[in-house]
């Protein structure tokens, strides 16, 4: 589905990613973990085209993504749930969904607004509210719904549990598992190890812009030294 090979990305003169290699297969859910500043969001941004890597290759469905603009990457089938939700505050909940609604020729599952409302009934109740009038959890649901309506083949999620109460995190976790059942490939950046290990088929740990470990969620949860050294747990 998607493969990053020796990706080097920068913010200005700061070298953030030092040759990241990772692969997500079709229908697979991979979690990307690491401490603050490890390069997780930069990896997501590099795939989405929000940061242009200076070296390396990102192959998505056998096509190179580096050099493509974010709109081209989105149309190629990559959806993004960004860090901090970034819902449009000047748009109503319904408009936030309508703006993203798009048919896909390649995606197996075709999401509609009604299906998003079934997945998140609260969004239907609040469809006339402005984006900034929602709680953090509702905004996260809106951001996920908006990305699903792009009907992507591959979904990037950047810290979906950030700043949310435990009960809401549980809801978000169940939603991710529901979405996963549709066969959508996902790369999830998370600080919440329990959530990441619950939803992911495979876990990758980044440290200082490099992949330092890759394995199964259970292997990570039982490796105390790994948890302590790279994730500070």
């Amino acid at each position: 589905m998607i493969e990053l090979k020796e990706v080097h990305s920068y913010y200005g003169h700061s070298h953030i990613l030092h040759g990241v290699n990772l692969k997500v297969n079709k229908g697979q859910c991979v979690a990307l973990l690491g401490r603050n500043g490890a390069g997780k969001t930069t990896t997501i941004h590099s795939i989405a085209g929000l940061v242009v890597p200076k070296e390396g290759a990102i192959a998505f469905k056998d096509k190179e993504l580096i050099g493509k603009t974010p709109n081209h990457i989105s149309k190629a089938g990559v959806g993004l749930v960004p860090q901090g939700r970034r819902v449009f505050s000047s748009l109503t909940v319904k408009e936030n969904l309508l703006i993203a609604e798009r048919k896909s020729t390649s995606s197996e599952k075709q999401w509609t607004i009604e299906e998003i409302y079934q997945l998140f009934p609260i969004l239907k109740e609040r469809e006339e509210n402005m984006g900034n009038e929602l709680s953090g959890g509702q905004q996260q649901m809106l951001a996920i719904g908006r990305a699903l309506l792009l009907n992507p083949d591959f979904l990037l999620m950047d810290e979906p549990s950030e700043g949310l109460a435990p009960v809401i995190i549980e809801q978000i976790k169940n939603i991710i598992l529901d979405v996963k059942k549709t066969g959508l490939s996902m790369l999830i950046v998370e600080q919440n190890i329990d959530l990441a290990c619950c939803v992911a088929d495979e876990v990758i740990i980044l440290n200082k812009g490099e992949v330092v470990w890759q394995g199964l969620p259970n292997e990570l949860l039982h490796n105390e030294e790994l948890l302590k050294v790279h994730l500070g747990v």
């Binding site: 709109n71 970034r86 408009e95 703006i99």
Partner: peptide
């Protein structure tokens, strides 16, 4: 609607295609 969204967050509008 796209223009309003763009005033909020143009980068995100771009990421929506």
């Amino acid at each position: 609607m796209i223009v309003r969204a763009g005033v909020d967050d143009m980068e995100m509008v771009s990421a929506l295609g």
